[in-house]
Amino acid sequence: MSWHSDDRARTPWADDDALGSDLVTAVSETDLYDRVLASADLAFRAHRGMVDARAGLEMDLMLLELVYDSGAIDAPVGVRDRSGGSSRTLVFEGDALGVEVEVETASIEGQLIPPRPGHVTLRTPSGDIASVDTDDVGYFRFDVRPDGPLRLECSNGEGTCVTQWLPY
Score class of each variant (00 low, 15 high):
30 T>L: 15
59 M>F: 06
12 P>D: 01
21 S>P: 00
133 D>T: 05
135 D>T: 06
9 A>Y: 04
132 V>M: 01
45 R>S: 12
61 L>P: 00
114 P>W: 07
77 V>I: 13
8 R>H: 15
9 A>L: 06
70 S>R: 05
22 D>Q: 07
36 V>K: 13
28 S>W: 15
129 I>G: 06
63 L>K: 05
19 L>P: 07
1 M>R: 12
107 S>R: 02
13 W>E: 07
82 R>E: 09
106 A>H: 06
55 A>C: 03
74 D>I: 02
31 D>Y: 14
141 R>D: 09
27 V>A: 03
92 F>I: 04
50 M>H: 06
159 G>C: 07
16 D>H: 13
78 G>N: 01
23 L>P: 03
59 M>N: 09
88 R>D: 01
97 L>A: 04
163 T>V: 07
134 T>L: 08
148 G>P: 05
130 A>N: 14
69 D>C: 02
76 P>F: 14
161 C>Q: 09
147 D>K: 03
37 L>R: 15
25 T>S: 08
56 G>K: 15
82 R>M: 04
52 D>T: 13
85 G>Y: 01
122 L>Y: 05
94 G>E: 06
45 R>K: 07
126 S>H: 11
73 I>L: 12
165 W>V: 00
16 D>T: 10
148 G>C: 01
9 A>N: 12
89 T>G: 00
151 R>S: 04
130 A>H: 11
167 P>T: 08
70 S>H: 02
103 V>F: 00
53 A>T: 04
17 D>G: 07
139 Y>P: 01
74 D>K: 09
9 A>P: 03
168 Y>P: 05
83 S>F: 10
30 T>W: 15
35 R>E: 14
161 C>W: 05
22 D>W: 01
142 F>H: 11
164 Q>F: 05
136 D>H: 05
52 D>S: 09
162 V>F: 04
46 A>G: 07
8 R>T: 07
150 L>N: 03
27 V>R: 15
135 D>N: 12
48 R>S: 13
7 D>I: 00
19 L>N: 03
157 G>S: 12
39 S>Q: 15
70 S>E: 02
117 P>Y: 05
55 A>F: 03
149 P>S: 09
40 A>T: 14
112 L>Q: 06
87 S>I: 08
100 E>N: 08
123 R>H: 14
